[in-house]
Design a protein around this nucleic acid. Structure first.
Lengths: 199, 199
DNA sequence: TGCACGTAGTGCAACGATGCACTTAGTGTA
DNA sequence: TACACTAAGTGCATCGTTGCACTACGTGCA
């Protein structure tokens, strides 16, 4: 087989951009495209060749981080005995530090754009997708269960997250609080609907 | 100032190719362009975009290694008091492990192409240039001295090299012995002539 | 001798990365 | 309000990288 080095170059740069964004986000400061490009050792234009916008970059980074959570959850759920949804979720909590990862993500994002609604939206959208995937995983294993139960269980799995998020909101971006509540409500509704349709 | 990322990309790939070649040479095996390209994580074609030939790559790697020797020698000679060429050469031997570096280079090159006259030629040509630069450095500091003395001193500085080279030749590539002797003779003549002309 | 095969090296067209000039939009300031 | 300034994002020409097909040459083998 032949390795496609043309794709390899693209992939390398894409990775470099994401890694740089992850580092910059973790450092807690806002950052510009120029900073991102410099950190990734690519040109500013290349960033826009790979991603539609800065938010696209950040969303991708967050999604990647939460995929760790999803993968861990999926492994726990699929490898465990069929007992009850509760034991699966409890097991996932023991194996993966879900609230820890998501809290880290949230704090980092808070630093990324304090007072910027974009940060909260990116966070909630990413976490929402993560929750949906986890709820779907549960529903696959327990098809006879009520989708509402799965959604609520996953929601409580993410509880630590919400607490941290709310805390951050209270401390640094009070004006987001109301919007945050709305987003979490709509998230729960979307989860139930998603599980019901089973994609 | 603006960083030229176009050049940066080129430089990065050039470095990757040289590093890969250095590693492959050090590992002691022969290697093809394909191996080199794969190791450097660039396409085969890019190797030829940067270097005219495989020998060009190897020569560059060797030259870079010997620049360590040259730089160390130059520092010792220029920073030391003007006393005698002999003390300078002795000082350089104390500071830099000249025979060690060159012997390593030779063993590595021997592995690169056992039975291949190219290896010996690359080695001798590279070392010859190194010797010339060192002899020139000596002649600059002691312009009244006989170029022959400078050449012979540098030659003796490289003595460990010759010994190792001769040993390797005897063991693994006897057929190169005669050619090696010729090369070293012509090297000495060229050194003297070079110093005499002072470039 | 003829032939398959591996490897060095080249020519070329397509694709990816880059520099630069440009528009757009938000923000602070006189 | 007007204006300077900063940063996001776009269009385009150019340069660097890559895949692929090709030639040339040495080597082993029937």
């Amino acid at each position: 087989m032949t390795i496609d080095r043309r794709s390899a170059l693209k992939a390398r740069h894409r990775r470099a951009i994401l890694d740089a964004a992850g580092a910059l986000i973790a450092e807690g400061g806002r950052f510009s495209v120029d900073q991102l490009a410099e950190r990734a050792d690519v040109s500013r234009r290349t960033v826009f060749n790979h991603f539609a916008s800065i938010d696209d970059v950040v969303t991708t980074v967050c999604t990647e981080m939460l995929h760790v959570v999803i993968d861990g959850f999926r492994t726990t759920v699929t490898s465990g005995e069929r007992e009850s949804m509760f034991t699966d979720v409890a097991g996932a909590l023991r194996v993966t530090d879900v609230p820890g990862i998501v809290a880290y993500l949230w704090r980092a994002l808070g630093g990324f754009a304090p007072g910027n609604p974009q940060a909260a939206q990116i966070f909630h959208a990413t976490v929402a997708r993560t929750c949906e995937e986890m709820a779907l995983e549960l529903a696959r294993k327990y098809p006879e269960a009520d989708p509402l139960d799965a959604a609520i269980l996953v929601s409580s799995l993410m509880n630590g997250t919400v607490a941290v998020a709310t805390h951050w909101i209270a401390v640094t971006a009070t004006q987001l609080d109301e919007r945050s509540r709305e987003l979490w409500h709509s998230l729960l509704e979307r989860m139930i609907e998603t599980v019901r349709k089973g994609y």
